[in-house]
Simulated assay, not measured.
Amino acid sequence: MFDRSHKGSELPEFLLKDPSGKEQKLSAFKGKPLLINLWATWCAPCVAELPALDRLAKARAGELKVLTISQDMGKPEAVAPFLKAHGVTALEPWLDQEGDLAVQYDVQTLPTTIYYDAQGREVWRLTGAHDWTSSDTQALLAEAR
């Protein structure tokens, strides 16, 4: 079920980390639509949708940023090898080790995906897995104008 009750909300100020410790502000991704996917290696529906998210990231590379943010706590060094082992090549291993972003979004279930327009305003969010290569996905992504 797509939730549009937060439509227009600003992208939160949040600092992401990659496994090497490199930091990046979420706001740095403004400028094109942004699909944020909160997931974990232990979440079966999350893992099942990774290949479709990877294909979407490759297919729309110049016009959409797909940002997967792992909620794995305690073993951040396992995320990048996990993605590689699953054949994921276009998604980066960003981390939310403390679960702060999940708290910000009041996430109760993984995966949870939040979609922003190019100006950093929320369009919709989705709880649960989705087929990101489906025909209805194109219409959903077109909502960010």
Rank of each mutant, 00 (worst) to 15 (best):
77 E>S: 13
119 Q>Y: 01
24 Q>D: 03
110 L>S: 08
104 Q>G: 01
50 L>T: 00
20 S>Y: 01
136 D>F: 05
117 D>N: 15
70 S>L: 07
126 L>H: 15
17 K>R: 14
70 S>C: 05
47 V>Q: 03
74 G>N: 07
44 A>I: 14
58 K>A: 15
116 Y>E: 05
41 T>K: 07
128 G>E: 08
75 K>N: 11
22 K>M: 06
61 A>L: 03
87 G>V: 03
117 D>V: 08
10 E>H: 00
100 D>N: 14
55 R>D: 08
60 R>D: 07
112 T>Y: 03
42 W>R: 08
141 L>R: 00
30 K>N: 12
22 K>N: 14
72 D>M: 04
30 K>Q: 14
130 H>K: 10
125 R>K: 15
93 P>A: 15
120 G>F: 13
143 E>W: 12
63 E>W: 07
75 K>P: 00
68 T>I: 11
69 I>G: 05
119 Q>G: 04
130 H>W: 15
52 A>L: 11
36 I>T: 06
18 D>K: 09
89 T>C: 00
44 A>M: 11
73 M>Q: 15
78 A>D: 15
112 T>V: 13
32 K>W: 05
117 D>Q: 13
100 D>R: 14
30 K>F: 09
70 S>K: 01
41 T>Y: 06
113 T>D: 07
73 M>D: 10
38 L>E: 10
77 E>P: 04
79 V>D: 07
78 A>F: 02
118 A>K: 12
132 W>I: 03
72 D>R: 01
78 A>N: 04
13 E>C: 06
109 T>R: 07
25 K>Y: 07
5 S>K: 12
83 L>F: 12
7 K>F: 11
38 L>G: 10
122 E>Q: 15
135 S>V: 14
3 D>N: 15
115 Y>S: 08
22 K>Q: 15
94 W>M: 04
132 W>V: 02
86 H>Q: 11
97 Q>V: 12
66 V>S: 08
45 P>I: 07
61 A>I: 09
49 E>S: 03
92 E>P: 05
95 L>E: 01
